[in-house]
Write a protein that binds this DNA or RNA. Structure first.
Lengths: 218, 218
DNA sequence: GAGCAAGTGGAGGACATATCTCCGTTTGCT
DNA sequence: AGCAAACGGAGATATGTCCTCCACTTGCTC
């Protein structure tokens, strides 16, 4: 960074904000594959403007997710602060997965090293010990089965984001049903929690299938 | 169809077989997104040859999966024939998911209506009552929790194929670990089965993340 | 309020990917 | 031998994405 970065002209700064906002929305809705042309359109500026402000897509992504990536960290810490060890684990899963549902780009960043390697790797590094504490605590409390490992956590999240992505448009909460099943499988004691969401109807399932797997390809 | 379809010249018939074989391999490995050019190359013929034999990609897919699509049906019936209701359910999940792992195109066909609507819809129609029997039987035996619905079955499969796809290259069996957890969550009684596969090591997890989500885009 | 650097828009160049066609050449069959 | 069938693969067509270029506009400074 240069020591003397003169401030942007006020119209330019306004456009910069518009671009960031538009990109935030679009990435959250559709994932990182959206084009900068699309971002420009939504922001109401020309493509050229986007490219002068952000040399390429990576730069925009970086600027955008600088903080958002550790929203997950905040959730984890919030969970850590809870008294009940099991409730903390449930809270963490529920909130973290739900976050990935609201923001598709975030999910893509978390589950892939393809973009912004540094920043994400760093965020993961910070996250790991906290999640580890949540897991270990639940195990020590005798609530979480002992053969679960920290590396299981992201994969469990992945499973549920897959359901979420698939069913999102026909039944946005359906994933909670499957999270409940998984949590029952993770918990010692064998009590079964009532499933918090209804099963899909046949029509809903057809609807989900109709849109099929992986919308990324537009 | 014409009543008198004269047989193909023998070289042409040979090529037809080669094309089907190549397409079968490639689709299984990489999914339905592979180009017919790629199929032609693997088959050792020109693209033109592929297109004379199969008017378009859909036709090729149709010809290929005419039977393969109800391999799942076969598994379901095999499961139905088993004595132990719970074991039947476990068997069905294990084999069906594992099939999706071996054949990516099959998975895409099953979870999306985008291709070959008719044939797949038909296959699903046949499959449903059989799966329903497996589910109901396990519930009547008091082994499967009663609040599970038939529509839950495909979504559970989906969850696990997501894990499988993600971890396939670093630990091909990891998905069985999560299937075990899910099954424990589905079963009444609360006994916990030992997890049949090791958790991913940190390095394996990194490896999975490095290749990231959704390879379809090559 | 003049002048100029900073900023802007968006057409379009460069490149990549996919589907499918066309036609000069080769090959099997009778 | 001769001809219809089959072949290969260059390339037409279409679509999509990234990014550049430059004639024009706008805010800021003196």
């Amino acid at each position: 960074m240069s020591l003397e970065t003169r401030p942007l002209r006020k119209d330019a700064e306004l456009n910069r904000q518009r671009i960031l906002a538009a990109a935030g929305e679009l990435f959250a809705e559709a994932g990182l594959h959206v084009t900068l042309d699309a971002v420009a359109e939504r922001a109401g500026v020309g493509v050229g403007t986007v490219y002068r402000r952000f040399p390429d897509k990576e730069a925009l992504i970086d600027a955008l997710f600088e903080d958002r990536i550790d929203a997950v960290g905040a959730i984890a810490e919030q969970a850590c602060a809870m008294d009940d060890a099991w409730a903390a684990l449930v809270f963490f899963f529920d909130r973290a997965i739900s976050l990935h549902g609201e923001d598709r780009a975030l999910k893509e960043l978390v589950f892939s090293t393809a973009h912004g390697q540094d920043r994400v790797a760093q965020a993961r590094g910070k996250l790991k010990p906290i999640v580890s504490r949540i897991v270990v605590r639940a195990q020590e409390a005798g609530e979480l089965r002992p053969d679960i490992d920290i590396t299981d956590v992201p994969l469990i999240q992945l499973m549920l984001t897959a359901v979420m992505e698939y069913t999102h448009d026909v039944s946005p909460d359906a994933w909670r049903r499957y999270l409940a099943v998984v949590l029952d499988g993770l918990r010692t004691g064998g009590a079964q929690t009532p499933l918090p969401a209804a099963a899909l109807t046949d029509e809903q399932l057809d609807g989900a299938m109709a849109r099929g797997l992986r919308p990324p390809r537009r």
